[in-house]
Design a protein around this nucleic acid. Structure first.
Length: 457
DNA sequence: ATCGGCTCGCGCAA
DNA sequence: TGCGCGAAGCCGAT
């Protein structure tokens, strides 16, 4: 991403793991190892957690830190160096990548279309002084192989399937020929599972957003969740995926978001169990449509990216009378008149995730009960960025804008929504087990534990 | 329980 | 230029 020459006399090749925080199934890491072998150097992996991004909280920090011990262990086994930096306070150093790059032949990092990595990858290459490579290890078919903003799933689907055979192959692990010897750089923090609560407490972040009740970060938890999904739920995924009460979905999105597991290895593992077209449709086609949106939209989280018919019809109805209008504070506290909506919000507050189908309902109702489309979007992004473990991700921004008509088509005109698809409580009642979902959520609220039959990973 | 209409526009066939 | 059909639906008629 720049024209800088490789540094002579460097000590290592640096891989800055911004999004793909894992030692396995990681094209970025293998690319770094290949270059290190060519240069007869070891690889150093740099991973950081900072307190400075909006809504940094105990929830995200706990999840991220939980992944560190296993990443460290697996890299050590491969002879790859690892430095983990916890920026606890705003006053702590924020120039670590530059300091590490000063002794590196070149820098490899993750290509990612939103959030902090997008900003880094736009500004750092010009200032870093060595070659800077951003590798796409987030998508199975690289996101930049599609040359325009796709209109909907049906336009990207055939393009993905045409080349999928070429990309749906395991990442080949490259043996690191020159092992990292000696201690990590001085800024390194050794993380143990037991130390995580105290480390999180010592950070300058929002301590009021508690760790997830349902999800533990890290490679081991992700692999356990994947095994449970494949063994028990994949076979009925197609039939039950839209019924939250059926617990048929993978729930892998938090680990996918933080890169603790790769979509490629998940897809290969699912395929190895037999045909899984519905799951692969969600995991590959719709997920990568979301990356396409994030890559090509001027901003992934603004209404300007929705199609013209949707923007026109929403604004035509912006002045329509609303039966209920709630403030951000009322939404956040789950204080609407609708028990299903409130339960969805409580699930988000407690676990950091809402089932995909109910998340659509959750979003549609925020549009219905906000004074105008812009403030509805602001509420959704605030709640999602603050509480969702899979938030600040191309997927969640796309899921949110889908509620406003992105990647969708027009339907019969009605109040508030215009021609944008409407969803109703009666529809949820008819198609999903609302009652058992409501019982599960109130059990969680009463006991502070997951309902019987739902395991924590 | 099932079906058609609602309404726009992309992409392919002709 | 015509035509089929599409990210998760709703509603009223039958």
């Amino acid at each position: 991403m720049n024209d800088s020459p490789e540094r002579r006399g460097a000590r290592y090749v640096l891989y800055w793991a911004q999004m793909n925080r894992r030692a396995d199934s990681n094209h970025s890491l293998e690319f770094a190892v290949s270059h290190a072998n060519r240069l007869k150097l070891p690889v150093l992996v740099y991973e950081a957690v900072t307190c400075t991004y909006p809504f940094a909280s105990d929830r995200f920090h706990t999840f991220l830190l939980a992944g560190v011990p296993e990443t460290a262990r697996r890299l050590r086994e491969r002879g790859i160096g690892y430095v983990f930096y916890l920026r606890k306070r705003r006053s702590d150093a924020n120039d670590i990548p530059y300091r590490l790059a000063a002794e590196s032949a070149l820098v490899v990092t993750d290509d990612y279309p939103v959030f902090i990595p997008a900003a880094h990858n736009a500004s750092v290459p010009a200032k870093i002084g060595v070659p800077y490579f951003a590798v796409d290890s987030s998508c199975i078919v690289p996101m930049r192989s599609f040359e325009k903003k796709e209109y909907a799933a049906y336009t990207i689907r055939p393009k993905i399937h045409r080349v999928l055979g070429e990309f749906l192959r395991p990442v080949e692990q490259v043996v690191a020929k020159h092992a990292w010897n000696g201690p990590p750089p001085g800024i390194h923090l050794e993380v143990t599972k037991e130390a995580i609560p105290d480390l999180v407490a010592s950070c300058e972040i929002d301590h009021s957003v508690r760790p997830s009740m349902a999800f533990t970060g890290g490679r081991l938890a992700a692999e356990a969740r994947l095994r449970a999904f494949l063994g028990r739920d994949l076979a009925r995924y197609g039939a039950d995926k839209n019924d939250p009460g059926a617990h048929a979905t993978s729930n892998l999105s938090p680990w996918l978001h933080f890169g603790h597991i790769s979509p490629l290895e998940v897809a290969l593992a699912a395929k190895a169990r037999g045909p899984a077209p519905e799951f692969l449709e969600e995991l590959i086609v719709r997920r990568e449509l979301a990356f396409n949106h994030a890559l090509w939209a001027p901003r992934a989280d603004e209404l300007s990216a929705i199609p013209g018919w949707a923007l026109d019809t929403l604004y035509k109805h912006a002045g329509d009378r609303r039966e209920h209008v709630y403030s951000l504070e009322q939404f956040e506290a789950a204080q609407t008149h609708d028990p299903l909506w409130n339960a969805c919000q409580h699930e988000l507050l407690m676990t950091g995730k809402i089932h995909g189908y109910y998340r659509m309902y959750w979003g549609k109702k925020i549009i219905e009960w906000s004074s105008d489309p812009e403030s509805a979007l602001a509420v959704m992004i605030h709640l999602n960025d603050k509480y969702a473990l899979d938030g600040r991700d191309p997927n969640t921004y796309t899921n949110i804008l889908w509620c406003f008509g992105l990647h969708d088509r027009p339907w019969g005109e009605r109040e508030v929504f215009g021609m944008v698809r409407f969803m109703s409580f009666d529809g949820m009642k008819r198609k999903t087990s609302v009652d058992s979902y409501l019982r599960e959520i109130s059990f969680m609220r009463m006991t502070g534990t997951l309902p019987p039959g739902v395991e924590k990973h």
